[in-house]
């Protein structure tokens, strides 16, 4: 499993795709951070993180599209399947490689929030009076980062699953984009629905609406469990795809 993990991580940076992903992610995050906090003159980072989720629509498929599709096209999956590595080992190796790059980039993008702290410091000095609270809320940021990472991992496992279904990278990317888009947009669509029952169900399913708790600094266990289960279910499905192909 570790060999596959290493190989995948390395291959992100042999091809341009790893650099493109990191570059676009950091640029988009910086831009969104500027608009949602500095230009909007607020210390509230909730909007920034919510917008970050929407950038995943394009960014996560970049990471996951080739993971299995390329192996299938080059017939190299035969090598992995006949090596003394279990299917779980193969799937998790790939998942963790994508996850490492993703989590790493998210953590690096936290640099964007430092200007807020710097501004808060100067503002606090300039005001003589003891203002109750100036500056961004650190617990809120931490809970948001945790939420964003968990949602990203869920999306990665969805992308991984889609990639295992096709040998065309482009098809894998497009389908993943569609799925992530639907999952994120559900929350917005919900506001236009007036039937309570439907709203309740969609609200329960929606990834974005569960994220609102995180933006207020609440570590919502049910949401964490929900995101982790999505990852788990799609990883399991990917394993099943390979299991089934053997028997096909």
């Amino acid at each position: 499993m570790f060999a596959i993990y290493k190989k995948e991580l390395r291959s992100y940076f042999i091809n341009a795709i790893g650099y493109v992903y990191v570059g676009v992610f950091l640029a988009a995050a910086a831009l969104m951070c500027c608009y949602t906090t500095l230009i909007s003159k607020t210390y509230d980072t909730g909007t920034y993180f919510t917008m970050l989720l929407f950038s995943f629509i394009i960014l996560i498929p970049l990471l996951t599209m080739k993971l299995f599709a390329e192996e299938k096209k080059l017939r190299t999956e035969q090598l992995l399947m006949t090596a003394p590595v279990s299917i779980w080992g193969m799937v998790l190796g790939k998942f963790f490689a994508a996850a490492t790059l993703f989590v790493g980039t998210v953590l690096v993008s936290c640099i964007n929030l430092f200007p807020l702290y710097v501004y808060a410091n100067t503002e606090r000095l300039s005001q003589d009076a003891q203002v109750f609270r100036i500056g961004p809320s650190t617990p809120e940021i931490i809970s948001c980062v945790i939420g964003v990472i968990l949602i990203g991992l869920a999306f990665i496992s969805i992308g991984l699953f889609v990639s295992s279904l096709t040998e065309n990278q482009l098809a894998a990317a497009v389908i993943t984009v569609a799925i992530i888009l639907v999952m994120l947009i559900l929350g917005i669509v919900n506001e236009f629905i007036h039937v309570y029952a439907i709203r309740f169900v969609i609200d329960w399913i929606s990834i974005a609406s569960r994220f609102t708790n995180f933006t207020t600094g609440i570590l919502d266990y049910s949401a964490i469990l929900y995101y982790l289960s999505i990852s788990g279910v799609f990883l399991l499905l990917t394993v099943r795809v390979y299991d089934k192909r053997r028997w096909g």
Binding site: L74, R75, T76, E77, Q78, L79, T82
Partner: peptide, 8 residues
């Protein structure tokens, strides 16, 4: 295998 499984 029939087609050598190589990472190009």
């Amino acid at each position: 295998p029939e087609q050598p499984p190589l990472y190009m």
